[in-house]
Design a protein around this nucleic acid. Sequence first.
DNA 1: TAGCTGACCAAAA
DNA 2: CTTTTGGCCAGCT
Length: 111
Amino acid sequence: MEDLNFYESVYALVRQIPEGRVTSYGAIARALGREGSARIVGYAMGNAGKANPPVPAHRVLNSKGQLSAKAAFGHPDLMQQLLENEGVKINNDRVVNFKSVFWDPLTEELI
DNA sequence: TAGCTGACCAAAA
DNA sequence: CTTTTGGCCAGCT
């Protein structure tokens, strides 16, 4: 499937994130074999709003489990609401028990 | 082609 | 805790 661009690969991987789970840009980059391209993942997320089908970008956080991109969803609290709606608790713009809800595509993408 | 951009990451102060 | 610094790389103009 070399037809897929890096962006498309990112979208495909993000769409595999199950509900109630989150992952990080770096984890996605590593899963795609581009550990150094964590920034590109975030950049791709910028286009995620125009991607089809839409990608659950609210499940993608930075390595600290912080909602760094909450403002990019059109409303500062939308990202947090979406996560809490899936059972992910947010406190002070940070995911509670980040380790527990963290979804590592390298080990769980085979679902 | 070259340069700029960025929803990042990690370490240091 | 916050702020700074350097590195990283695909896509866009």
